[in-house]
């Protein structure tokens, strides 16, 4: 066997979609082991000795705002195409759902719920989607939900 044979690679076209992912899988595995060895174990040792803490347990965590954002966004994404199908290809699903979504998100993020702030937020929630919808969906005929 010659040395050049060592570098010979033949790829079966019908299986070629798996060739590169396989290489990446091996590299990922090797890297994961190295990280465990050089980073993970020393890290855990420090956690045990109390010098460092596990992720997620540091700093303040405003669960209301994080989960609120997630919940609102999921509702927004689910309702958009649903409402959109009622008015096919007009982008109204986007427009009609963006207004309450933006308003709710703003209110969630607000720290002072006084009249002036709410008015500002309400106007923003109204104007921004209408402008976006009008320019993009109407003027440029971009497909929106």
């Amino acid at each position: 066997m010659e040395i050049s044979d060592l570098f010979q690679v033949s790829i079966d076209f019908s299986q070629s979609h798996l060739f590169f992912p396989r290489i990446i899988h091996w590299l990922l595995l090797i890297m994961a082991l190295m990280i465990l060895l050089f980073e993970g174990i020393p890290y855990l040792r420090e956690v045990r000795s109390g010098r460092k803490s596990l992720p997620f347990t540091t700093g303040s965590f405003d669960s209301k705002r994080v989960f609120g954002t997630l919940l609102l966004t999921i509702l927004y994404f689910v309702s958009m195409p649903y409402v959109g199908e009622l008015f096919p290809n007009t982008g109204l699903g986007f427009l009609l759902m963006s207004i309450p979504y933006m308003f709710a998100l703003s209110v969630l993020y607000l720290h002072q719920h006084d009249r002036a702030h709410l008015l500002r937020v309400g106007l923003n929630a109204l104007i921004a989607p209408v402008v976006a919808w009008y320019i993009l969906a109407k003027l440029f005929a971009i497909t929106l939900p």
Partner: peptide, 30 residues
């Protein structure tokens, strides 16, 4: 007031969008 405003504006847009459908075809306007 804000909520009413939003509701009103929404209705307006609704009306606008549905009023323009007038072509004599069974295909939707868009």
């Amino acid at each position: 007031k804000t909520m009413i405003g939003i509701a009103l504006a929404t209705c307006g847009i609704f009306g606008l969008a549905s009023a323009t459908a007038s072509a004599d075809t069974s295909f939707p306007n868009n």
